[in-house]
């Protein structure tokens, strides 16, 4: 099975490769750039690429939530914090610790290579699907099988929002 580049399957494969390239390029920008604003922009690119990968994985709903929550909420919140805290002026002295140089790179590379070897060497099973994983089934399962977890996540979000307000408000004398 080897589709030509200009058939429908070949074009899908080409778009998939482009998506992976976008994701990895965004990740490299996010963890290597000097200025934090550029890192947040790279993070947004990376998240959009991951959203496209979710689309390839037959879950357009999670892809939409990825763009909505990560790009729309988390990255925007981080860029607000960068503008509030102005971190660019405070990066003038030497290396942080022993791990910040090549040793950090070696550590991360070892982790990555280990995970990749596990992914490539294992024979992953394949079981028949019991449903099609559509949005309707997700909604039904969220409110029946996973309703307890759903409520707990809601409580965690509520507490974290209140806690964030309390912590950020401290020390502000008005």
């Amino acid at each position: 099975m080897n589709p030509s580049l200009f058939s429908a399957d070949g074009l899908v494969g080409l778009i998939f490769l482009l998506t992976i390239a976008i994701t990895i390029a965004g990740g490299i920008i996010a963890c290597n750039s000097e200025r934090l604003v550029r890192a947040v922009a790279g993070l947004m690119i990376c998240f959009i690429g991951v959203g496209a990968l979710y689309y390839f994985l037959n879950s357009p709903f999670v892809a939409m939530m990825q763009v909505l929550i990560y790009v729309g909420a988390v990255a925007v919140t981080i860029s607000f914090a960068i503008m509030l805290a102005d971190p660019e002026q405070s990066s003038q002295h030497g290396p942080i610790n022993a791990l910040s140089g090549p040793f950090g790179f070696i550590t991360a590379a070892l982790l990555t290579v280990g995970l990749a070897l596990i992914a490539l060497k294992t024979m992953w099973g394949d079981e028949p699907k019991v449903n099609d994983g559509s949005v309707k089934i997700i909604g039904t399962q969220l409110l029946t099988d996973y309703s307890m977890v759903f409520e707990l996540v809601s409580i965690v979000l509520l507490i974290s929002i209140i806690g964030a307000l309390v912590i950020a408000r401290e020390g502000r004398k008005s």
Binding site: F16, I24, A30, C31, L53, S91, G104, T107, A108, L111
Partner: peptide, 24 residues
């Protein structure tokens, strides 16, 4: 392919976590 991309994202995250100097 997806597992490799996931592993790469994880590794880049770990690299950033131990080499970044600012909390953000």
């Amino acid at each position: 392919a997806y597992l490799l991309v996931g592993a790469l994202l994880f590794g880049m995250g770990v690299y950033g976590l131990i080499t970044r100097r600012t909390l953000i």
